[in-house]
Computed example of a mutant assay.
Amino acid sequence: MKFCDECGSMMKSGEGEDHWVCDSCGYEIGREDEDDEWTTESQVESEIVDVSDAEDKGLPQTTAHCPECGNDRAYWYMQQIRSADESETRFFVCTECEHKWREDDH
């Protein structure tokens, strides 16, 4: 997908598919070989969040009941684990035993 440098609209392949054309303003630009490379979900590496030293990372704390040890304080962070059109998931890490759970794991 290519966006117009002039107006920001989505561009389409022009005749012969050797250039991009903006339907909104008519701006044209040549296509490069890199433009044909597509990234699929399987090619994207997900980031692994190491929470073993959560206190040192400055994560915010909240009141949350740990299902493992019963402690009432936890660090929390948000992470996108589903597709982009769905909301993020909130994860908690117990301040005492470092047990990790999701907000919806009740």
Rank of each mutant, 00 (worst) to 15 (best):
M1P: 02
K2N: 10
K2D: 13
K2F: 06
F3C: 06
C4D: 10
C4E: 11
D5K: 11
G8V: 08
M10P: 00
K12A: 06
S13I: 02
S13T: 00
G14Y: 04
G14T: 02
G14M: 06
E15C: 06
E15G: 07
E15A: 14
E15W: 10
D18T: 06
W20C: 00
V21L: 10
V21P: 00
V21C: 08
V21I: 03
C22W: 06
C22A: 06
C22E: 07
D23Q: 14
D23H: 15
D23C: 14
S24T: 13
C25Y: 14
C25T: 13
C25E: 05
G26K: 07
G26W: 11
G26S: 08
E28S: 05
I29C: 03
I29V: 15
I29A: 09
I29Y: 12
G30H: 10
G30K: 14
R31E: 14
R31S: 12
E32P: 08
D33H: 12
D33N: 11
D33G: 07
D33P: 00
E34S: 10
D36L: 06
D36M: 07
E37A: 11
W38G: 02
T39L: 11
T39F: 10
T39G: 10
T39H: 08
E41D: 08
E41K: 09
S42Q: 14
S42M: 04
Q43G: 00
V44F: 13
E45C: 05
E45P: 02
E47Q: 15
E47S: 14
E47D: 09
I48L: 05
I48V: 08
V49H: 13
V49K: 12
D50N: 11
D50F: 09
V51S: 07
S52R: 14
S52M: 12
D53E: 14
D53T: 06
A54C: 07
E55L: 09
D56V: 03
K57Q: 07
G58C: 01
G58Y: 00
L59E: 04
Q61M: 00
Q61P: 02
T62G: 03
T62E: 07
A64L: 02
H65W: 01
P67E: 11
E68M: 12
C69Y: 01
C69R: 01
G70V: 09
G70Y: 06
G70W: 12
G70Q: 06
G70S: 02
N71L: 01
D72R: 15
A74T: 07
Y75W: 12
Y75E: 08
W76D: 14
W76H: 15
W76V: 15
Y77L: 15
M78H: 13
M78T: 07
M78N: 10
Q79K: 13
Q79E: 14
Q79F: 15
I81N: 08
R82G: 01
A84R: 15
D85R: 15
D85E: 14
D85L: 15
D85M: 15
E86P: 02
E88A: 04
E88P: 02
R90T: 10
F91W: 05
F91P: 05
F91S: 08
F92S: 12
F92V: 15
V93H: 03
C94A: 02
C94F: 02
T95N: 04
E96R: 00
E96L: 00
E98V: 00
E98R: 00
K100S: 03
K100G: 00
W101M: 04
D104L: 08
D105P: 05
H106C: 07
H106P: 14
